[in-house]
C-alpha cells in the first residue's frame, strides 16, 4: 500500500503531506531527510530514492516471513517534487505512472496547475488526491474517471455552499481555480479590499 504522499517545492517547503499509516512520531525528521535527499539529486537520476541515511526507515522489514523494502518514489515537475512512500505491494513503475495521473488530474482541475494553486487550495488538492487514493489503496487510475468524480464532488460542495449562502453571488465553496477565495460575504468583501489577484 501507499504509506505517504508528499508534495514539496525545490526549497523544501511542504505543499501537501498525507500519511496513510501513522508515521507521525518519526515523520518530522523523516520528511526533512527525504526533502534534503531528493532536493540534492540532480536531474537524470532514477526516480527511486535510496540512500544509506534512509536505510533504517526503508530497510528490509520482515512481514509474515517475507522480507520487503519500502520505497520512496518521486517525480519532479517544475518547482515541485511529488513523493510517494510505498511498500512491496505496489509496483514501482506503476506508482511512477500514478504520480503522472495525479499531476494530470491537478492540471485539469486547476487549468495549468502551478505551485500557488496548491498553496491556496490545499483543501482542494486533498479532495483530488482522495479520488485517486483512499486509505493508502489506489481507488482509480483513469484520469477521465477521476476528473468526473472530482467535478461531481466539487459541484456538490458548491451547491451546498450556495444554498447556505444565498448572497455569495454564485461563486465560492472554496472551489474553482482562482475564484474560490470568497467564502462568506465578509470574506468576499475582504477579498475585494485586499485584491483578489494578490496571490
Amino acid at each position: 500500500m501507499i504509506h505517504a504522499v508528499l508534495i514539496f517545492n525545490t526549497s523544501g517547503i511542504a505543499r501537501l503531506t498525507k500519511y496513510y499509516t501513522p508515521l507521525r512520531q518519526s515523520s518530522q525528521t523523516l520528511v526533512q531527510k527525504i526533502f534534503s535527499l531528493v532536493c540534492s539529486r540532480p536531474a537524470g537520476l532514477c526516480n527511486f530514492l535510496d540512500a544509506p541515511e534512509l536505510e533504517a526507515f526503508l530497510g528490509p522489514k520482515t512481514k509474515n516471513g517475507v522480507e520487503e523494502r519500502w520505497q520512496v518514489i518521486y517525480r519532479s515537475y517544475a518547482t515541485l517534487f511529488f513523493v510517494f512512500v510505498v511498500d512491496g505491494a505496489e509496483s514501482e513503475l506503476g506508482i511512477l505512472d500514478l504520480i503522472q495521473v495525479f499531476v494530470e488530474c491537478l492540471d485539469r482541475a486547476f487549468e495549468n496547475v502551478c505551485e500557488l494553486d496548491l498553496v491556496f487550495h490545499f483543501d482542494e488538492v486533498h479532495h483530488i488526491l482522495a479520488e485517486i487514493v483512499q486509505g493508502g489503496l489506489v481507488l482509480e487510475t483513469n484520469v477521465e474517471e477521476i476528473d468526473t468524480s472530482v467535478q461531481q464532488a466539487s459541484k456538490a460542495r458548491k451547491e451546498s455552499f450556495v444554498s447556505a449562502n444565498p448572497l455569495s453571488l454564485g461563486v465560492g465553496g472554496g472551489l474553482g481555480p482562482r475564484t474560490g477565495n470568497i467564502k462568506t460575504p465578509l470574506g468576499w468583501l475582504t477579498g475585494k479590499l485586499t485584491g483578489v489577484g494578490a496571490r
Binding site: 501513522p22 486533498h126 479532495h127 460542495r157 458548491k158 451546498s160 447556505a164 472554496g174
Partner: peptide, 19 residues
C-alpha cells in the same frame, strides 16, 4: 448537514485524528 462544511470536517479529521 451541509456538504461543503462536512467535507472540511472530514478533511480535518483525516489529517489530524489518530487511533
Amino acid at each position: 448537514p451541509r456538504s461543503h462544511l462536512k467535507s472540511v470536517g472530514y478533511l480535518g479529521a483525516v489529517q489530524s485524528f489518530e487511533q
